[in-house]
Each structure stands twice: as structure tokens, then as C-alpha cells.
């Protein structure tokens, strides 16, 4: 419901926002003084161009692009193997080896430094610093996984770009970790990555939801989604993909022997009073909690 001032109200008529906030006043001001706003934008643009021209002619400073390390040069994979031989030995079995070839013309095109940045300074540093660790900062991963970067900016997401999680918590970029879905030498165990944090959903229960055996990603996009709870699908289509919805020719949807036609027209499968225990139930075989 819209109130007079344009803000949504709940069923008690209470404003869900604060129409008199500073932000609202800024918005109102901008809308009333659109012409002034255009003039301001024009002024800022001209000032920016002037600043650009001025600094272009007077400055020698370089802005470092991501993956560049000041003062470092590409050293090649063999230099990495001197110390990290355990990782380089296994690398050919790693999914990232799919894009690795020798003889590339561009430094850092493939191999270790494609993700970790140029390594010469790291090699020379007594404290082994001056190297990028994509496990802590996802920028290197996003250079190739463009759509994943976009997912991490959707409204519902794991907090990776916020720095509270990192890619390596779920993925093993070098392969070899039994519990992570690396597709490398070791093979992942079901849902182990998610279970590290989501124990409530992955604990054993008396009546299991069989979908848990398909893996969490059958229902959730672990990177990000436009839907709450990072669901891949917001409505009952999510469940009906697997739960056969045989019709009897009368426009009804039966699941098993139960006519779900009226339920599905007004609620999702996991709505209150229905199959709320979507991850499994300790009390009810139909997951009604």
C-alpha cells in the first residue's frame, strides 16, 4: 500500500521507511531542482576534464592495476616450483590446468602468475611477501570468472566481496583437498563445503529430504541470487522439477495421491503449515516439521 507521501506502509499503516530523513530531503531537493542538478553535474564534469588535462601534463605517477605488484616482474612457473613443488607437481591434474599452456607470448597469461601476479619481488623478499593471494582477495578469480563476480553483487549473496569470506573456503584452486569441490586429484564429498558453516541444514535427521543428496546447489546458488536464501528459483517450480506433478487430465496437480492444486495456487511448497522442514525432519515423514 502506498501512503500519501509515496512510502510503502504495512497493514497497520505504519511507514516502513523514514520520509523525513536527510536522504529523503536530498532526494526531494534534487527532484525539485533538476536544472540546478544538471548545472552542478556540468560544472563537475568540466572541472574533472580540467583536472585531467592539468595532471596529464605534469604527473609521472602510475596507478597500479589489479594483479600488478610495484617493482615486480614475471619470473615463470619454474621459479615457483623451487619452493612450492608440492603444488606445481599436482597442478596438471587441476581444473585450472585446462587453460595452461606453454609458449604464450604474454607474460602471466597462464600459469601460477596469472593468478598470483608477477613473482620476482616475492622470490627476493626474505619474508616471502609481495605476492597476491586470491584466497584472501577474490580479484584474481574475478578476472576470469566474470559471471561469478556479477553473482557476488546480487542482492542475496555470500559476503565475499565484503571480505568476510573468500573463494578458498569453498574451492581448492590447486586441487587435492578431499573436502572441497575442486574436481582435482581428490574427489569431493557431498555438501562438505557447505557443512563447514551450515551444520543445522546438513545434520542427520530421521526423515531426510532426498534432494540433500543431489547437493545444496540443486536449490541454492552459492555465489549469489536475486532471491532470498539464494534460491535459484523463487517459487514452487523449484520443487516441481523433481517432484512429479502428474495431472489426471482435469487441470489438477497431484503429488503422490494428494491433490496439491489449491495449495500450489496460494503458497510455495515450503510455506507455513506445509513442508516447512525443507532440509529434513525429525518428526514427520512428509517434512511438515
Amino acid at each position: 500500500m502506498q501512503s500519501d507521501d509515496g512510502f510503502a506502509t504495512d497493514r497497520r499503516g505504519r511507514a516502513s521507511g523514514a520520509p523525513n530523513s536527510v536522504s529523503a530531503r536530498i532526494d526531494q531537493c534534487l527532484s525539485r531542482h533538476f536544472g540546478l542538478g544538471v548545472l552542478l553535474a556540468l560544472f563537475l564534469t568540466l572541472a574533472g576534464i580540467a583536472l585531467l588535462l592539468q595532471s596529464c601534463s605534469s604527473l609521472e605517477r602510475t596507478v597500479m592495476a589489479p594483479l600488478e605488484i610495484p617493482g615486480a616482474q614475471y619470473a615463470g612457473d619454474r621459479a615457483c616450483a623451487d619452493c612450492h613443488n608440492e603444488l606445481t607437481r599436482k597442478f596438471p591434474a587441476n581444473p585450472h590446468a585446462r587453460i595452461h599452456f606453454t609458449g604464450g607470448d604474454l607474460s602471466g597469461q597462464t600459469g601460477c602468475e596469472a593468478c598470483h601476479g608477477p613473482g620476482s619481488k616475492h622470490i627476493a623478499d626474505a619474508n616471502h611477501q609481495f605476492i597476491l593471494n586470491p584466497g584472501k582477495e577474490p580479484g584474481a578469480c574475478f578476472r576470469c570468472h566474470l559471471e561469478v563476480q556479477a553473482d557476488f553483487h546480487l542482492p542475496h549473496r555470500h559476503a565475499v566481496v565484503e571480505g568476510r569470506m573468500n573463494c578458498a573456503q569453498c574451492h581448492d584452486p590447486h586441487g587435492g583437498d578431499m573436502a572441497k569441490p575442486s574436481s582435482g586429484l581428490a574427489l569431493a564429498r557431498h555438501n562438505e563445503s557447505c557443512a563447514q558453516c551450515h551444520r543445522e541444514q546438513t545434520r542427520p535427521v530421521v526423515f531426510e529430504h532426498e534432494a540433500m543428496r543431489e547437493g545444496c546447489a540443486i536449490c541454492h546458488n552459492p555465489h549469489g541470487s536475486i532471491n532470498r536464501k539464494m534460491l535459484t528459483i523463487a517459487d514452487s517450480n523449484l520443487c516441481l522439477r523433481c517432484h512429479a506433478q502428474n495431472q489426471n487430465g482435469r487441470g489438477n496437480i497431484y503429488i503422490g495421491a494428494v491433490d496439491h492444486t489449491t495449495f500450489l495456487s496460494r503458497a510455495t511448497c515450503w510455506a507455513a503449515g506445509c513442508h516447512t522442514a525443507v532440509h529434513g525432519s525429525n518428526a514427520d515423514v512428509r517434512l511438515l516439521y
Binding site: C56, E147, G251, N252
Partner: peptide
């Protein structure tokens, strides 16, 4: 320019999920 850096990413996706394929009016493809 040495002192300027820009990175831009554009991503477009579309998807379609179809169930209840024998026709009910209350459940549309997602």
C-alpha cells in the same frame, strides 16, 4: 594513461524453468 585505471564488467543472463507442463493457470514458467 599511466595514472588512470578503469575496469568494467557487463554481464547478461536469461533463464527459464518450466514445470507443470500440462497446463495450469496458477503456475507460470519461472
Amino acid at each position: 594513461l599511466r595514472r588512470f585505471y578503469f575496469s568494467g564488467t557487463f554481464s547478461y543472463s536469461d533463464s527459464r524453468v518450466l514445470t507443470a507442463q500440462y497446463g495450469v493457470d496458477f503456475l507460470h514458467p519461472y
